[in-house]
Design a protein around this nucleic acid. Structure first.
Lengths: 211, 211
DNA sequence: GCGGGCATCATCCGATCGGCTATCCGGGGT
DNA sequence: ACCCCGGATAGCCGATCGGATGATGCCCGC
C-alpha cells in the first residue's frame, strides 16, 4: 500500500529525549521526523516551516511558555497539525489543560515504543489517543463523582502546601481572609477531609498538586 | 592516541530515554553502549555479564527497587563499574541517597549531550561529576545540615497526613497530647516549617512520607 | 560519667482554625 | 427566565493549634 509518510515534529527541552524519540520514530518506515524544537518559540517556527502531520509535545519546556500554551499556539496556526502530548506526568490538571489547549492525545514517556508508534499513527488520522493509565484515571474521575477542584481552589492548595496561614494567603491572592476560608471549606468538602494537613496530603495523592 | 573504548550500560525504565542516550552515546567513537536494563534485576544481570566501565543509572525505575538501591547492588559486584546517575530530579534526598549508595556522578536529563559525554568520560576515569545545579544544592545543604527525623516523628507525620488532630494522634499512639505537641514542635524545627500543612508537604517532598 | 538525642508529660496563653449562616454577583446551562 | 456554581465577603464562636518553658527517664557515644 502506497501510504503517505507521516511527518512528525518533536518539541521537548531534553536533548536526550529528542534523540531517543527521533531514533525510534525514524526507524519506522512510515514515520519521518522533520523537525525538532526545544522551546515554545522554536516550536511555533518549526511547525510553521515544516507543516508536519503530528507534533509530539512535552508539557514541561523549562522556562517560558509550557507545553499546554505551546499546543494552543500551534493549533492556532493555519492548517494546524494534530498534537500528541508525550510527557512524564499524568496529573489530572495537566491532562485537562492539554486537552483543553487542543491536544488530541496524551501518552506517558514510559510507554513502550510500539505504543508510541500506534499513538502517532492514530493521532495523524485525527483519532484521540490516551495512555491506558490516563484513560483509567479519567474514567475513574468520571464514574466516581470526584468533585473537581476549581482553579482558584488549586491556588489555595498550593499556598496551603507552603504552610501559609489564612491571612497570608489572603494577602497573596489579594482577597479577604473570609474568601480564603470559604475556599478552604469547599476544598475540604470536595476532598473529603477537614484539616489543612489532610487537604495537602490528599491533594498530592490525587495528583492535584505535584510534590 | 590508541585509547580503550569506554563500555557503557544504560539502566532506565523509559524506552525512549534508553534509545536517546544510546543514539547519542554510540555516535561518539570512544564510547560504546554494551547493554541496557529496564529494572533492577536486569541491571545487575547485564552489568555482571558485560563488565562495563560506566553505568548510566536512572533513579526512578518504576516498580521494585529504585536506582539508588540498584546502584548499591551494582557496586557490590566484583570489580564494579562506576555509576553515573542520570535522572530528571535533583531532590536533596535523591542526591544524597545515590551518592551514599556509591554513585560517583549525578547529571540531569536536560543536560546537553556534550556535558553528558564529558561526564561519562570523567566517571570512567573515576572522577566525581556533578551537574552544576546539583553541586550548588549540595553546597547549600552542606552549610546547613538537614537534621534527620526520628522514627517516632515519622509516625506523627503519617497521622498528620491523614488529617488527625493532636488528641486523635495521642489516642492512636497511646501517649498524651502534650507528647504529640512536643513531637510536632521538633518536626517543625527539623523541617523548617511552622504549620501542619507545611510539614506534610515538606515531608512528602523530602520523601520522608510517600504519597 | 556526662552531654545529647529521643521520648514522655505538664501548663499557660494568644493566635488561628473550622463550621455555620447569609449575602452578592456574574456566567452558563435548562 | 431561572437556577446553579464559582468566586468573593462578612460575623460569630468554640475548638484547636503553636510557642514558650520546664521536667523526667532512657540509652548511646565520647
Amino acid at each position: 500500500m502506497p501510504e503517505q509518510r507521516i511527518r512528525v515534529v518533536l518539541v521537548d527541552d531534553h536533548p536526550v529525549v529528542r534523540a531517543g524519540v527521533r531514533a525510534l520514530v525514524d526507524a519506522q518506515d512510515d514515520l519521518d521526523v522533520v523537525g525538532e524544537a526545544a522551546d515554545s518559540t522554536q516550536a511555533v517556527a518549526v511547525v510553521g516551516e515544516t507543516q508536519p502531520d503530528v507534533v509530539l509535545m512535552d508539557l514541561s519546556l523549562g522556562d517560558g511558555p509550557g507545553g499546554a500554551e505551546t499546543t494552543r499556539l500551534v493549533r492556532e496556526l493555519p492548517s494546524p497539525p494534530n498534537v500528541l502530548v508525550l510527557t512524564t506526568y499524568d496529573t489530572e490538571a495537566d491532562v485537562l489543560e492539554a486537552v483543553d489547549a487542543g491536544a488530541s492525545g496524551y501518552l506517558l514517556k514510559d510507554a513502550p515504543p510500539e505504543e508510541l508508534f500506534r499513538a502517532i499513527r492514530g493521532t495523524a488520522r485525527g483519532e484521540t489517543v490516551l495512555a491506558p493509565s490516563v484513560a483509567t484515571r479519567l474514567l475513574q474521575r468520571a464514574a466516581s463523582p470526584t468533585p473537581k477542584v476549581s482553579p482558584r481552589e488549586v491556588e489555595i492548595l498550593r499556598l496551603l502546601a507552603r504552610g501559609l496561614g489564612n491571612k497570608e494567603m489572603a494577602r497573596e491572592l489579594l482577597v479577604s481572609e473570609a474568601t480564603v476560608k470559604s475556599h478552604l471549606s469547599h476544598i475540604y468538602t470536595k476532598l473529603g477531609v477537614d484539616t489543612r494537613a489532610g487537604a495537602v496530603a490528599t491533594a498530592i495523592e490525587r495528583r492535584i498538586l505535584r510534590p
